[in-house]
Design a binder for these strands. Structure first.
Lengths: 338, 338
DNA sequence: AAAAAGTGTGCAAACGTTCCCAAAAACGTT
DNA sequence: AACGTTTTTGGGAACGTTTGCACACTTTTT
C-alpha cells in the first residue's frame, strides 16, 4: 500500500530504542527484559503497528504463503478442499494464493511458475486433466519448493500425497448399482492419465468381478477435458447409449453433472430410466432430476491433511525423505431408489 | 522461496555492469544504449532471470496484487465474478488474493485487514450479509487504499461500484410469474441491510404494482445469514407456506437453491406446485427439480468491469474524485412452463 | 576551440525487516 | 574492589530492487 503506516523504526525513535531491540520485543526473540518488551508492545498497540510482511519476506526469504492449484474453484469438491486448506493455513499464519488451471496444462504450468516467482513457501496441487509432463514440477521441487499433491496425484513423484479412497468409493458405487439390479453398467471417466481415473476404474472393475459381470471395455468412456467441453460429453453419451446400459457410474464431479445435463439434453427419456451413480461433492445434489447416488469425497478433510503435510515440510529443519500417501474414505449418499 | 535464483546483482557481476544499469535495461527505463540492453536481456534470458517481486514490492511500496472479498467461493455467482476479475488482472500483471467472509462481518473485517497488511494495492469487495458498519473500510480508503464494491454495495460510500440491474432483474422475474397467472407471490430475500435486497425488493413491488396486485409485507421474508444456515431458510419457508403463495421470487443464489432444498425437505408436495423464480448463476439449474425461472447476473463481466475500475484507480496519478456506478443487465433464463 | 547539451553508466541510498556481533549494564563472586 | 558472568541493548549489514544524482564521455553549438 502506498500509504504510510508506522514502522519498527518509528517505534524505535519514539521510544529511544534501537530497531533491533524493538524487533526482538515484537517477535519475542532472544533475551529481552520484560520491561522493555511491555513498553514496546504497549506502544506498538497504541500506534496500531503492523509488521510489513513484504519486508519480512524479503529478509527471511520466505513469504508465509502457500500456493494452491486446482482446475476450477467453481467446483464443489475443490472449493471445499480450499476451505479445508484455509482452515489450517490461517491457523498457522500462512496465507493462501489460489490459481485455476481450467484443466489446461499450459495454464497450470504458467500459474505454478508465477506462484513460484511470487515466492510461495510451498505448493498444493491437483493436476489438470491434460497434464502428462510434470518435469517442471520436478525442477521446482529439486530447487527446494515443497509440494504436496492431492486428488490428482502423479505416481512417480516422491512426496506427500492426499487422496480419497477412490477404489473403495468406486467399488461401493458400482456395487450399489449392481445390487439394485443393474447389469450393463457404463463408466464415464476422466482423462486416462489421471491417477484418479485409474483407481476409480479399478474399483469399478473389481465390483463387476465380485458379481461375475464381465468387463466390457466399450462401456468405458474417457473424457480428455474432464467435462470442460460439453461437446465431449455429448459425444461420449452418444456413443454409450446404443450399448443399452441400464446404469452408469461417473467418476468426477464435473463429469457427473455434465453427463446428466448431456443425457437430459440429448435423450431425456433415457435419462430417467438410467440408474446413475457418480462422484460429486455438489451440495445441490438433492435438487437434481434425475436423481443419483453420489460418492462424496471428504474434501474439507483432504484440504486440511494436505496443508498439514505441506506445512510440516516447509517447516522441517532438514530435508524430508519419508513421505506418506494419506487415503481418506469416501461416503456413499443419497441412494436413489429405482 | 528459500532456494536461490539469479538476481540483478549476479547479472551485473557476470556482465561487468552495475546493478542500476542492469535494472534499467530490464525495465527499459531511461536512456540506455541498445547494445547494453540487448546484452543484459540476452543474459537474463539465458540464466532464466525472474525479478523478485518481493524486493520490488518493498522498494516500490506496492505489491501488484489486488484483494478480493466474497462471501463464498463455492457460489457460482462469485466464482464467475472471480474468473472475470482474474481475466483482467492477469492481463495487467496483477495478482489476486481471494478471501471468503462466509457471510460473517467479523471474518470479513479480519480478512480485509489481513489483506491490507499484506500490502494489496486495491480491494474488490462484495459485503457480507451481516455487514452494517463499514467504518473500517472507510478508514482504509481514507489512508489511500483504492476500493471498488461489486454486487453488495454500500449506498453512502463514494467510490466506483459495479452492480447488476437488480431492479430490472427482479421486475422481469416477478412479471414472469404474474404473466404465468400467479397472484400470490412471495419474496424470499437476503438481509435487509444489503443494497441488493432493497433494489430487488423494489423491482418486485414495481412489478406487482404494474399489474395492480397489492403488496403484502407478510409475503416478504428476510434471511439475515443469506442462506448460510438451513434452519433459517426452513423457518422462512414454514412461515410463508400458510399464506398459500402460488409463486415465489427468491433474490439470491444461495437462497434460491437453499429455499428449493428446504421446500423439498419440508413440503415436497408443495414444492412442485409452486412457481419459482430466483436469482442464481448456477450452471446446474437445468438439472433442478422442481425447475425454476432464473435471473442470471452477468457475473464474469461484473468482475471484469470492477477490476478495470479498480486498476484505473490504483494507477491514477492523482486522487480520483469522479466515481461511477456501472449497472449491468441481468438475463432471464430457463422459463419454467407451468 | 571552448562551451553547452546530450547520452550512457555507476554510486549509493532507500524500502522495513531480521540477526550477527559487539558493547554496555547489571549482577554475583572472591 | 576487582573481576567474571549473565543479561540486555545497539550498530550495522543484509535481503533484491529502484532511482536521484553525479560523473564521464560524445556530440553539437557558438
Amino acid at each position: 500500500m502506498r500509504f504510510e503506516t508506522s514502522t519498527i523504526k518509528d517505534i524505535a525513535k519514539a521510544l529511544g530504542l534501537s530497531t533491533s531491540t524493538v524487533s526482538r520485543a515484537l517477535r519475542d526473540r532472544y533475551e529481552i527484559s520484560e520491561e522493555t518488551k511491555k513498553l514496546v508492545l504497549a506502544y506498538a498497540e497504541k500506534v496500531n503497528y503492523r509488521a510489513n510482511p513484504i519486508a519480512r519476506s524479503l529478509k527471511e526469504r520466505r513469504s508465509y504463503s502457500i500456493g494452491i492449484i486446482v482446475s476450477e474453484i467453481a467446483n464443489n469438491f475443490f472449493s471445499q478442499v480450499i476451505n479445508g486448506i484455509e482452515s489450517i493455513a490461517y491457523d498457522k499464519d500462512y496465507h493462501v494464493i489460489i490459481s485455476q488451471s481450467h484443466e489446461s496444462y499450459k495454464q497450470e504450468k504458467l500459474n505454478v511458475e508465477h506462484l513460484a516467482s511470487r515466492s510461495i513457501d510451498g505448493l498444493l496441487i491437483a493436476l489438470s486433466s491434460e497434464t502428462q509432463d510434470i518435469d517442471y514440477l520436478r525442477q521446482l521441487y529439486a530447487k527446494g519448493l515443497p509440494i504436496v499433491f492431492f486428488d490428482r496425484v502423479p505416481v512417480d513423484f516422491e512426496t506427500h500425497k492426499v487422496i480419497a479412497n477412490n477404489f473403495k468409493g468406486s467399488f461401493d458405487a458400482t456395487e450399489h448399482l449392481i445390487l439394485s439390479g443393474k447389469r450393463t453398467i457404463a463408466h464415464l471417466t476422466n482423462s486416462e492419465n489421471l491417477s484418479i481415473t485409474k483407481e476409480r476404474l479399478a474399483g469399478y472393475t473389481a465390483a463387476l468381478a465380485k458379481y461375475h459381470i464381465g468387463f466390457r471395455p466399450e462401456l468405458v468412456k474417457y473424457c480428455q477435458h474432464g467435462g470442460m467441453h460439453s461437446a465431449e460429453l455429448e459425444q461420449a453419451v452418444k456413443e454409450l447409449l446404443p450399448l443399452k446400459p441400464d446404469g452408469i457410474f461417473i467418476s468426477s464431479d464435473r463429469l457427473t453433472t455434465g453427463c446428466i445435463m448431456a443425457l437430459k439434453k440429448t435423450n431425456p427419456e433415457v435419462a430417467h430410466k438410467l440408474a446413475i451413480a457418480g462422484f460429486t461433492n455438489s451440495n445441490l445434489v438433492d435438487l437434481f432430476s434425475p436423481s443419483l447416488t453420489s460418492v462424496k469425497q471428504p474434501a474439507f478433510e483432504m484440504g486440511q491433511v494436505a496443508t498439514e503435510l505441506l506445512i510440516s515440510m516447509i517447516e522441517a529443519k532438514r530435508p524430508v525423505t519419508e513421505f506418506e500417501t494419506r487415503i481418506l474414505d469416501t461416503e456413499l449418499v443419497n441412494m436413489a431408489k429405482r
